[in-house]
Amino acid sequence: MTFNAKTFVFATTVAISGLGSMAQAEEVVLRAVSAFQLGTVFYDPFESFVERVNENGKGIVQIDVIGGPEAMPPFEVGNALRGGIIDLANTTAVYHANLVPEGMAMTLTNMSMDELRENGGYDLLDQLHREKAKIHWLGRLTQNIQYYIYLSELPDGVDFDALKVRSAPVYQSFFSALGITPVQTAPGEVFTALERGTIDGYAWPSLGVFDLGWQEKTAARIEPGFNQVETGVYFSDASWNELSQEQQDFLTEQMIAFEGEADRYNALADAEFAHQAEYGITTIQLEGEQLDTFVKMSNEEGWKPVMAASPDAGGRLRDLLVK
């Protein structure tokens, strides 16, 4: 389905035009989109959050999810939030890094959201989003989910220099430093690229391989993982400011409660890895100097694009986001 901004704006006019009276309304219905396909592993946390809000927020606030990528392309979501076309979204800062490049730092933290809310890391990232994109970061939906390199064939030792791997901008510098040839491939084209040998593998989180059918072309997963997947709830700042204090406090409380249950992702990753092993996907553990280099580069190279885009804020974020 082709995204038509005019059609989308018209379809949301009624909801947006009613935001001016939010503070007086007993119950507000907020319209949301997801950058992730409904029914997939990265939509599920948002679905759970919405169910929690709608159950606990009767008479206060409700969330109406109007669609996923078929309603709005993922890389359009940041601009839609900035323009007040939608009220909130299930997305990732990686998708609006053109607006807030510092948001990529969220994939590099090794600290919990509890720690970041206490030490000022959350406040700084939210401030940057508000100042640069008129977006309010409500909080994080996924924690403790790392990225991994998956290979289509079982190698006799790992030679990164010989690999062509589907990459993404947020870790492209890391791959290049390892010697990997990073290849930009849309998720919908990965299966075919693996089948044709255009790529030797792909980088993907611990979860979601089976959602996409990629297990059929996957022979191995390299350990350890690197970085952290970040998905969250982001508000149009205009929509957020139209809410009453009670409504804002309620949504913040629901988000913090959800973040406090982050251990659920450890269990999900364990179950996913067991499923991969049952399917025949072999685990390859890096060792010795190769392991040390991998871990060091994942940290050092990951921060380079953040520091290049925003040296001052990047330095402050690194101090707050890394133990």
Rank of each mutant, 00 (worst) to 15 (best):
F3Y: 15
T7M: 08
F8D: 01
F10P: 00
F10H: 09
F10D: 12
A11Q: 14
A11W: 07
T13F: 00
I16L: 05
I16A: 12
A25D: 13
V28T: 12
S34W: 01
F36I: 02
Q37L: 07
L38Y: 04
G39A: 06
E51V: 00
R52P: 00
V53Y: 04
V53A: 07
E55T: 13
G57P: 06
K58A: 13
G59F: 08
V61C: 13
Q62D: 00
V65C: 09
P69R: 11
E70R: 10
E76N: 13
N79V: 04
R82A: 12
R82E: 09
N90G: 10
N90C: 07
T92G: 15
H96A: 00
A97I: 00
V100R: 02
P101S: 03
L108V: 03
T109P: 02
M111Y: 00
N119P: 02
L124V: 05
Q127L: 13
Q127A: 12
L128V: 11
R130A: 12
K134C: 02
K134I: 01
H136R: 14
W137V: 10
R140Q: 14
T142S: 11
Q143W: 07
R166I: 14
Y171S: 08
F175T: 04
S176I: 10
L178D: 12
T181I: 08
Q184Y: 08
P187V: 04
V190K: 05
E195D: 14
E195G: 10
D200T: 07
D200F: 01
S206T: 11
V209I: 15
D211P: 04
G213I: 08
E216Q: 13
R221L: 10
I222N: 06
E223A: 12
F226C: 01
Q228E: 13
V229S: 03
G232F: 02
Y234F: 15
A238F: 04
A238G: 02
E246A: 12
F258V: 05
G260Y: 04
E261L: 08
F273W: 13
H275K: 15
A277H: 11
E278M: 02
I281K: 00
T282N: 10
G288I: 09
Q290W: 04
K296H: 14
K296T: 14
G302E: 03
W303N: 05
A313V: 10
G314C: 08
R316S: 12
L317V: 08
V322E: 05
K323E: 08
